[in-house]
Design a binder for these strands. Structure first.
Length: 686
RNA sequence: GCCAAUGUAGCUCAGUGGUAGAGCAACGGUUUCGUAAACCGUAGGUCGUCGGUUCAAUCCCGACCAUUGGCUCCA
């Protein structure tokens, strides 16, 4: 299904994610590296160990993954990290035994029989404990493909291999975590326990891996964000997933917006602004509600229309009945009073029911407003606000729009996955003839940005629809799908962009191209997106007047090359490990005097003033604090450029430059230094 | 939302069934120094929240909230 282009060396190969293990072909398996074989074998050893401790365990799938391996197990006992030591001890025994991984080719009938007896994925036959997941795996093997077992010691597993020769070939391993996972990744299916581990050729490589993880933690955007005072997430008062940008983080936000505004202005975009809310009708019309409602915050409901006199009258009667009932209850407890009370109660009940029915009949359902989860419908209404001629097209509407998405609680992740987000959004309305050029221009813009940020490790992913999703996941326009997908593919091929094509991942309104990047800890994210929309403009009745005086529906390109501030900045923090280039650095320059000598301060002050007058983010440390400490403070803040001033500099009309992480650069004439700083910012030097 | 782990001062972390400590940061003072951390002192905590067990809970138990690692989902 995934059709792969040639990979550039700087791009990662497309990999099935842990979530969606594509069934490997025998060809793929033959290509498994030695490390992957070690890890796959280690998964078998782990299963062996788990069975010795809990013989009734049922195993599903246990492949090698990017940094190790896992095995999904169904087991009554909840495996927790406390159990790891026990399991690892059993694993060590199995490795020490140095059992051979023996391949046994069998018939489908034999495999089915061994599944039913519980033998597969077990140490022995387990009557009454059918290897149910192995049956599922067996059924997934195409007719004609050979069926094999791998056996180490008593453990026999349905497995196509390949493995290492002996369990003793597994050099070093460690169990790392336990998680819930659905069988075959299907939410509706049974939930299994997924035990993760990792394995390497030897202990040194294993230690190196954990050292690397520690390194990665150090550049985690959540850690650096706190250290540098970039953002805060106040879950108690603001809410989870809704970051607050602190002053220094706001610098990053505004620098990115500045970059986007300049770039988009040059590319012929116009800017618009839209509210954060819209009526329910907006999302009914756009078609988002049926596809997207789960990801949106629940609506704000307003009672806008007034009820009819008839309802008002009934409501009055109802409240009177309620009052009388209360009076009766308060008065006494005679039989007569009791029945009277019953009457009022029944009366009220009847009235309420009648009122409810009337409200429904009169269409008095409350008016609903939704927080916008995307900007496109608003932009569509901007298009609709004025009549358009083919001469106006392409019309490129840009906005850093604020959106709100109700992401599931377990999905939130620092700045990378949030509930309030600012999107580098724009919608390009164009004719079919203009489409290819516009689409290409958008791709060029991506590449321009990536160059500025030195972004080298990314993957372009072209997501197309799947026929079986038409009318459900995707708008039911089979011909339009084909046509637009062909157009996009053509542009991609023509512009020589390397990409991976993935079926059944498109937006509901059209195919898209996502740019995937990886966070410091290896998690994958879409950093930018570019989508074609051939469906929604028509739903809003958007048209332009063409040359032949007919009304036509424009195509729409959604694009967000800088993604969202939240994710993009989260990514940049990790990309630069907090050591931002001068133009982005929240603290660009700090002027530091050797001591608090008045002459030095008087020499330094005009330099600070000149830089500030040129919009440089500069501050000064003229304090009596020991000089080395002043340097250290500035380094810890990650101030990009430190201008150090002592007596020698003053006499020479110079300043000594020190760069964060770059060390002392020596003394230079102050005018030269100032000019260089200003140029570096203006050029957005790396 | 699901599974698991975690939650002690602004940060990094100790700690105990008898109502809490260290380093850094902050604040006050001393210190006058050429490229990553001077010295002394002060202040700072309902030990995530709520409930339970107990004479007594930060510690044991439960629920909830949040974060983290995964799953599902996604910019």
């Amino acid at each position: 299904m995934a059709e792969e282009n040639e990979q550039q060396p700087n791009q990662l190969p497309a990999q099935p994610t842990a979530a969606n293990p594509e069934r490997k072909t025998l060809d793929d398996r033959a290509k498994m590296t030695e490390l992957e074989r070690i890890r796959h074998s280690c998964a078998h050893v782990m299963a062996t160990a788990i069975l010795r401790l809990w013989p009734d365990a049922q195993f599903a799938a246990g492949p090698p993954v990017e940094n190790g391996f896992y095995y999904d197990v169904d087991l009554k006992h909840r495996i927790s990290p406390e159990d790891f030591e026990k399991i690892e001890a059993e694993m060590k025994k199995e490795i020490k035994a140095n059992n051979v991984f023996e391949k046994i080719v069998v018939t489908r009938e034999q495999a089915m029989k061994d599944s039913e007896s519980g033998r597969l994925g077990g140490l022995a036959e387990r009557p009454g404990n059918v290897s149910k997941f192995k049956i599922g795996n067996l059924e997934a093997i195409p007719e004609g493909e050979p069926i094999s077992y791998f056996k180490n010691g008593d453990f026999i597993d349905l497995c196509a291999g390949p493995h290492v020769m002996r369990t003793g070939n597994i050099g070093a391993f460690k169990l790392t975590s336990v998680a819930a996972a659905y069988y075959k990744g299907d939410e509706r299916g049974p939930q299994l326990q997924r035990i993760y581990g990792t394995a390497f050729k030897n202990k040194t490589a294993l230690d190196e891996y954990f050292k690397m993880l520690e390194e990665a933690k150090r550049r985690d955007h959540r850690k650096i964000g706190a250290e540098m005072g970039l953002f805060a997430i106040d879950t108690e008062f603001v809410g989870p997933g809704m970051p607050l940008w602190l002053p220094k983080g706001t610098v990053l936000v505004e620098e990115l917006e500045k970059l986007a505004k300049e770039t988009e202005f040059a590319a012929g975009y116009v800017r618009v602004r839209t509210p954060h809310l819209a009526r329910e009708k907006m999302y009914q019309t756009s078609g988002h509600l049926p596809y997207y409602a789960d990801s949106m915050f629940p609506p704000i409901e307003l009672q806008e229309r007034e009820a009819s006199d008839k309802i008002k009258k009934l409501e009055e009667q109802s409240s009177q009945a309620e009052q009388r009932f209360a009076e009766v209850v308060a008065k006494g407890d005679s039989k007569e009073e009791f029945f009277k009370g019953q009457d009022f109660m029944q009366q009220q009940h009847r009235l309420k029911k009648e009122i409810e029915e009337l409200r429904k009949a009169e269409g008095l359902t409350p008016e609903r407003y939704y927080l916008k989860a995307m900007n496109c419908p608003h932009h569509h209404r901007i298009f609709a606000a004025e009549p358009h001629s083919y001469r106006d097209l392409p019309l490129r509407l840009a906005e850093y729009g604020t959106c709100y998405r109700y992401e599931q609680s377990g999905e939130l992740f620092g700045l990378m996955r949030v509930r309030s987000l600012n999107m580098n959004d724009a919608h390009i309305y164009c004719t079919e003839e203009q489409f290819a050029d516009e689409f290409r221009a958008v791709n060029d813009m991506y590449l321009k940005y990536f160059k500025i940020f030195g972004l080298e490790k990314y993957q372009m992913r072209f997501s197309t629809h799947a026929a079986e999703g038409l009318g459900k996941k995707y708008v039911n326009e089979p011909e339009l799908w084909k046509k637009t997908e062909d157009m996009v593919r053509k542009v991609l091929i023509e512009s020589g962009i390397n990409y991976v094509e993935v079926a059944n991942e498109a937006a509901f309104y059209g195919p898209k191209i996502d740019v995937q990047v990886w966070s410091a800890i290896g998690r994958e994210f879409t950093i930018a997106t570019n989508q074609v929309d051939f469906a929604v403009p028509a739903k809003f009745g958007l048209t332009y007047r063409d040359k032949d005086n007919s009304n036509k529906t424009p195509l729409c390109i959604h694009r967000a090359p800088l993604g969202t501030h939240e994710r993009f900045i989260g990514f940049l923090i990790e990309h630069y490990a907090g050591n931002f280039p001068l133009w982005l650095a929240p603290d660009q320059v700090r002027v530091i005097t050797l001591n608090d000598d008045e002459a030095l301060i008087n020499y330094a002050k005009p330099i600070v003033a000149e830089l500030r007058a040129n919009m440089v983010r500069v501050d000064a440390d003229f304090s009596a604090t020991p000089f080395k400490a002043k340097i250290s403070n500035a380094e810890q803040l990650r101030v990009h450029t430190m201008l150090v001033i002592g007596g020698r500099d003053m006499e020479a009309g110079a300043v000594s430059v020190r760069l964060h992480h770059g060390g002392p650069q020596g003394a230079k004439p102050k005018a030269e230094v100032v000019a260089d700083i200003l140029a570096g910012i203006k050029e957005r030097r790396a």
